[in-house]
């Protein structure tokens, strides 16, 4: 290939690229409608945020219902252990702190009936 042929090929490529670069198709209604339909149902688009009260925000801050449920359960268990400590708890406390003394602040019969529920 001579230098002239190479120059001609380069000129042809420049002309070809220039001609194709002028192509500017119109966007028809159908394509625009498809694109806008995609936009309307894009999965990551958030909906409007619902109005939320102070209680809901506080609950979310703590960690929601699972955390509140766990807190309630732990509270009940603590109260139960405090009111009627199992023997193993008293034994462990005695091992750690020496002798322990359990003082009942209520009369067992008043709280739990004649039989009483407290065996410790």
């Amino acid at each position: 290939m001579t230098m002239s042929e190479t120059d001609n090929d380069d000129a042809m490529i420049d002309a070809l690229l220039g001609d194709v670069a002028k192509v500017a198709p119109d966007v028809d209604d159908a394509l625009m409608a498809r694109v806008l339909a995609d936009a309307a149902r894009a999965p990551s688009l958030p909906g409007p945020a619902p109005a939320r009260g102070v209680r809901a925000q506080l609950g979310e801050l703590i960690g929601g219902w699972p955390t509140l449920g766990g807190l309630a359960l732990a509270g009940c268990a603590g109260l139960w252990i405090g009111v009627a400590p199992p023997a193993s708890v008293e034994d462990a406390a005695a091992g750690l702190f020496g002798t322990t003394e359990t003082v009942s602040i209520w009369d067992d019969a008043t709280l739990f009936g004649e039989e009483g529920l407290i065996d410790g």
């Binding site: 198709p25 394509l31 498809r34 694109v35 995609d38 936009a39 894009a42 999965p43 990551s44 688009l45 958030p46």
Partner: peptide, 19 residues
Amino acid sequence: AAEDVAQDAMMRLWRQAPV
């Protein structure tokens, strides 16, 4: 094919919007 590409590219833009 060009319309499919253009639509696909715009769809990716919509998905990219929140991030």
